[in-house]
Computed example of a mutant assay.
Amino acid sequence: MKHLIPFLKRPPVVPVIRLHGSIGIGRSSLSDAALAAVIEKAFKMKPAAVALSVNSPGGSPVQSSLIAARIRRLAEEKGVKVHAFVEDVAASGGYWLACAGDEIWVDDSSIVGSIGVIFASFGFPELMARQGVERRVVAAGKSKSLADPFLPQKPEDIERLRALQAPIHEAFIAHVKARRGARLADADLFNADVWVGQKAVELGLVDGVAHLVPKMKALYGEKVRLVPLGQKRGFLSRFGLSLAQDLMLSVEDKALWARYGL
């Protein structure tokens, strides 16, 4: 109640934005639309700083870019410092989000990096042939059936996909360089490798090993008030109810986490 009494000195406030999960447009995924109100609220609280709690294996590069850009835009408008704290993993799009922080802190066992772009799918042409199923496709435009999982993979499809990936990878690299600057070691950091804890510190991908609560108390005082904020789950999601589409998204989500042993 003390913070409601105007003549008493209020403790510094640090909102903690929870960025946990894969990044995309599913109901349970992190997206700019779902997080917009949360991020706006954090910067309206006249905070001493904003903390990001990041635990993400990645996902959509566009949503990663939009979320990070919103955080940076508000941080610069309000003149507020942003600290990112990585839990299990900040890989691919998860690291893109972490780079929205002015400083990035990790646990000794946190996995960081994967600065790359991936396209993954399945192919079923042999299964189709064994089952006597004929694939019939009529398309206007030679690239309309790009990477069709029911047809054999074609060299021109691979070339086309790599051409699509290149500018996304370049944008990711530019974002990391812009945010980390001279802190980055002179090493090949952009080939989608991942690093753990202290090694990521040595490479300049993060700033140090620290946990959120003690670090915020060390920087802003023992009385700092940490206010957790996160996107709300839908009514159906709270009870484990979802559509068939969400089942597929769940499988993809588990596959993303599994790449890092989680």
Results as ranks from 00 to 15, higher is better:
residue 1 M to Q: 09
residue 2 K to P: 00
residue 2 K to F: 05
residue 5 I to L: 14
residue 5 I to K: 05
residue 6 P to I: 09
residue 6 P to Q: 04
residue 9 K to V: 07
residue 10 R to L: 03
residue 14 V to E: 12
residue 17 I to Y: 15
residue 18 R to Q: 08
residue 19 L to Q: 08
residue 23 I to W: 01
residue 24 G to C: 04
residue 30 L to Q: 06
residue 31 S to L: 01
residue 32 D to I: 03
residue 32 D to N: 14
residue 34 A to L: 02
residue 36 A to N: 11
residue 38 V to K: 03
residue 39 I to G: 02
residue 39 I to P: 00
residue 45 M to E: 10
residue 46 K to Y: 02
residue 53 S to K: 11
residue 54 V to D: 05
residue 56 S to K: 01
residue 56 S to T: 15
residue 58 G to T: 11
residue 60 S to A: 00
residue 61 P to N: 01
residue 61 P to D: 03
residue 62 V to T: 09
residue 62 V to S: 03
residue 63 Q to Y: 05
residue 65 S to E: 14
residue 70 R to D: 09
residue 72 R to F: 01
residue 73 R to P: 00
residue 73 R to T: 14
residue 74 L to K: 05
residue 79 G to A: 10
residue 79 G to K: 03
residue 84 A to K: 01
residue 84 A to V: 04
residue 85 F to P: 07
residue 85 F to H: 05
residue 86 V to A: 12
residue 86 V to H: 03
residue 89 V to Y: 02
residue 97 L to P: 02
residue 97 L to A: 06
residue 99 C to E: 13
residue 100 A to M: 06
residue 102 D to W: 14
residue 104 I to R: 02
residue 106 V to R: 03
residue 108 D to R: 15
residue 108 D to F: 02
residue 110 S to N: 09
residue 111 I to P: 07
residue 111 I to R: 06
residue 111 I to W: 08
residue 112 V to F: 05
residue 116 G to H: 14
residue 117 V to G: 03
residue 117 V to T: 11
residue 119 F to C: 04
residue 119 F to W: 11
residue 122 F to P: 00
residue 125 P to I: 06
residue 128 M to H: 12
residue 128 M to E: 06
residue 131 Q to A: 12
residue 135 R to K: 15
residue 137 V to Q: 10
residue 139 A to Y: 06
residue 140 A to W: 07
residue 141 G to T: 13
residue 142 K to N: 05
residue 145 S to H: 05
residue 146 L to C: 04
residue 146 L to R: 00
residue 147 A to H: 05
residue 149 P to R: 13
residue 150 F to R: 04
residue 152 P to M: 06
residue 156 E to V: 14
residue 156 E to S: 15
residue 158 I to M: 04
residue 158 I to C: 09
residue 159 E to V: 08
residue 160 R to C: 06
residue 161 L to A: 13
residue 161 L to D: 10
residue 161 L to G: 08
residue 162 R to T: 14
residue 166 A to L: 07
residue 169 H to D: 00
residue 169 H to P: 02
residue 177 K to H: 07
residue 178 A to H: 10
residue 179 R to H: 00
residue 180 R to K: 01
residue 181 G to C: 10
residue 183 R to K: 15
residue 183 R to D: 04
residue 187 A to M: 03
residue 187 A to G: 10
residue 192 A to H: 09
residue 193 D to E: 13
residue 194 V to E: 08
residue 194 V to F: 13
residue 196 V to C: 13
residue 197 G to C: 04
residue 198 Q to D: 10
residue 199 K to D: 14
residue 199 K to P: 05
residue 202 E to P: 00
residue 206 V to N: 05
residue 206 V to G: 04
residue 208 G to P: 07
residue 210 A to C: 13
residue 210 A to E: 02
residue 211 H to V: 04
residue 217 K to T: 10
residue 218 A to E: 15
residue 221 G to C: 07
residue 223 K to W: 01
residue 225 R to E: 15
residue 225 R to K: 12
residue 227 V to L: 15
residue 227 V to C: 12
residue 228 P to Y: 11
residue 228 P to A: 14
residue 229 L to V: 14
residue 230 G to E: 06
residue 231 Q to F: 13
residue 231 Q to I: 12
residue 235 F to K: 07
residue 236 L to F: 15
residue 237 S to W: 11
residue 240 G to P: 00
residue 244 A to Y: 11
residue 245 Q to G: 08
residue 247 L to I: 12
residue 250 S to D: 05
residue 251 V to S: 09
residue 254 K to R: 12
residue 256 L to C: 02
residue 256 L to N: 01
residue 256 L to K: 12
residue 256 L to T: 00
residue 258 A to D: 13
